[in-house]
Design a protein around this nucleic acid. Structure first.
Lengths: 247, 247
DNA sequence: CCTAGAGTGTGGTTAGACCACAGCCGGTCC
DNA sequence: GGACCGGCTGTGGTCTAACCACACTCTAGG
């Protein structure tokens, strides 16, 4: 194969060559979201590399939320281009939290920053707000368990963030939330009384949504900041504090 | 091998099994930054999977900035755990920008948001500010070319962001900046007169740094927002606007 | 003592094989 | 004629076995 010869002039790992090729195809518009990559074997032959190297590149793209690999044949199989920035940022953040080089307190602080910006820039007539309202109705149900409540809570906050119309902020919000999902559900154990907390959270949610809908961005931003900080404080993750021990 | 048997009960791809194992080792503290992963062949044997699958997992971690693979032997070889969140977020963002599902305008907007927060929360006595000041001195030199100026500019803004002491914000700032480096250098071609612009940017940098050092966070935030927005506006990336055509 | 070479262990890359899966297509049976 | 069943084809998923380049480490020879 040529790769050794090529690498002699350009010290790039083989799979990076494949990555570069795919990224170029994306930039130049020859590959777009919804499109399909060539089959792994064809791509390997075309780029004069082994299938292993092609697969390594595709794995990276898959982890980054850029492609989705599907077996079988037919119109929904093969490796298709998608675009899920949240997945990429989320798993990256989660891993770095695991290395304990990204303090959870910093993540919470960043979440407050992004989310208060988002609600204060949300358009009062955004269709996302209707979605948020429906989620609140669901959360008001009596039979909602803790985990279900938290899941709906995530979706509510994401809907709010989407209303600002900034894809990057939405993706980062989602990834921050995803990276600490594990913590969030563990934190509920620290709460003195879940029902009381849930009631407070519900009320705060309605206030926030009302502020956004009346176009009072400043007030919505402050409410959201207090909402998030209040929750984590009650659950024991003080700003700059350490992470609670595992059960 | 057992993997097919295992996958029968739990539909997880083999390399994900390896990823999960490594993430657990990180969370539980048995692996830490600076530590070394077992050799690929050992790990494969230990987890009862093929070396191929182990490599796919390691590739993903490498792309996420969690490990660094080094050939050879000795104390600096092998696969060691690092922590470079910026790399992970940066390449992810860059790829999604390539798919044209993340508008450049949104990235700029997010950068303004994060950076103005950072400077308004920077500690006036942070050692990072001294670093920022040294970078400004370098930029004031007469013999500084365009590319060199831009490189120093990136480092200056990152130093400012670091002064806020939030690792997540710093990482996101760096990744946003990295994801649009390609654009930034192309944008200079749109400027009517580089020397004039450079002079203005220099003056604004000094003003921002002065505001931070006098603990006037609010003013620093506004200055930084105007600084960034002004530059992109002059270079032709208006908020919500489209991307300039390639040369 | 120092140096050149063999030895060892690391990741990097490749080739080739087999599997499970999903759609397609043609033949068969009712 | 229509419904069903089987093989065919192409996809990604996994594994094995081998080789390479590299960098250190040890050792034999000067």
């Amino acid at each position: 194969m040529w790769s050794n010869h090529i690498n002699y002039y350009c010290s790039m790992k083989t799979h990076q060559l494949v990555l570069t090729w795919i990224e170029t195809e994306l930039s130049e518009g020859r590959l777009a979201v919804g499109g399909r990559l060539p089959a792994e074997r064809s791509l390997a032959e075309q780029l004069r590399v082994s299938r292993t190297s092609v697969r390594e590149a595709i794995r990276i793209l898959e982890a980054m939320g850029v492609v989705r690999a599907g077996v079988g044949s037919g119109p929904d199989a093969g490796t298709v281009v998608i675009s899920d920035p949240t997945a990429a940022l989320g798993s990256a953040l989660r891993l770095h939290v695991a290395t304990q080089h990204l303090p959870v307190a910093d993540i919470v602080e960043t979440r407050v920053l992004l989310e208060s910006w988002a609600v204060s820039h949300a358009r009062a007539d955004s269709p996302e707000l209707a979605r948020a309202a429906r989620l609140l109705e669901e959360m008001d149900g009596d039979a909602v368990g803790v985990d279900e409540f938290l899941a709906l809570d995530v979706r509510f906050h994401l809907a709010l963030a989407d209303a600002a119309g900034n894809a990057v902020v939405s993706a980062m919000m989602g990834s921050l939330r995803e990276s600490i999902t594990g913590y969030a559900s563990r934190l509920t154990a620290n709460l003195p009384d879940w029902d009381t907390t849930a009631g407070r959270l519900r009320a705060e949610h309605h206030n926030i949504l009302a502020a956004v809908r009346s176009d009072d961005g400043e007030r919505a931003g402050k409410l959201v900041a207090a909402h998030i900080e209040g929750y984590y404080k009650e659950a024991g993750v003080a700003s700059g504090g350490t992470v609670p021990a595992r059960p």
